[in-house]
Computed example of a mutant assay.
Amino acid sequence: MKTMMQAIFAMILTIATSGIAMAETAFDAQGCAIVPSINSGYNSSISREWTFINLSNISNKNVQCLITIYDQNGDTVTSGMTVYAGPTVVSSGTGQFDIPAHATRRIIFNAANIGVHAFYGHAVIEWKSDDSRHRKALIGAIEKLRMHGNGLLKGEFLINSGQPF
């Protein structure tokens, strides 16, 4: 009987602590935006295309961000992403990074980083802060660049129609 009670206690303890571990890995987002048409590719040294995501924290508080990038098959390819603060890399391949109050980060996805010549898909941008009352913190835009030979095409589109999220 004592052995059975110990086994039941061990099982209860295992189940209870695994729930805590799962809760810690969840990203409890306070805001979210979906960005379509993320692409990157290269056919040769003279033909390339990129998508940059520029995110600005318009609040007075630091926020933590999580970006998940999905490819044309619905697989996550976040490992191809690099986050910059000016020329400094602040995160690479994880999708998680912080944006201090009133700061901006640039996210670049490079198809070569995941070992493919071309990629297209979408991104999900999530953020959270230590203040549970915090509702809108980010604004953003995507830049599309395409280079072929000596020509360069550029376009910019607002995320969430330019509205804070």
Rank of each mutant, 00 (worst) to 15 (best):
G155R: 13
G140A: 10
M5W: 09
I125N: 02
A21K: 06
N110W: 05
A7F: 14
A101P: 02
I159H: 01
I159C: 02
F165L: 06
E49Q: 14
I114V: 11
V35L: 03
R105G: 02
G80N: 01
D28P: 00
C32G: 07
Y84T: 06
A85M: 06
L152R: 10
V77M: 02
K61C: 04
G95V: 03
F157H: 11
S79C: 09
H122E: 08
S161Y: 13
P164D: 04
A26D: 07
E24V: 00
R106C: 04
V89E: 15
G93K: 07
M147S: 11
A33S: 12
T17Y: 09
S37L: 13
P100D: 12
L153R: 10
I58E: 02
I20K: 14
V35E: 00
N73P: 05
G155H: 11
W127I: 04
L55W: 06
R146P: 00
S161I: 10
N73D: 15
T88C: 05
R135L: 15
L158T: 10
H102L: 11
I159F: 01
G162Q: 06
A123I: 04
I69E: 00
R146E: 02
A16N: 09
A26V: 08
S129V: 14
A21I: 13
E126V: 03
Q163P: 01
L13M: 12
I20R: 14
Q72Y: 09
A103V: 04
S47A: 13
R135P: 07
F157A: 07
V83Q: 01
V116D: 01
A137Q: 08
C65V: 06
A118V: 12
I20P: 05
V116I: 12
T25P: 07
P36G: 05
I67P: 00
R105M: 05
F109I: 07
F109W: 07
P87R: 05
A33K: 03
S79F: 10
N113G: 03
S45M: 14
T88P: 00
G41R: 01
V124N: 14
K128H: 15
R106S: 09
K128F: 13
V124F: 08
T68E: 13
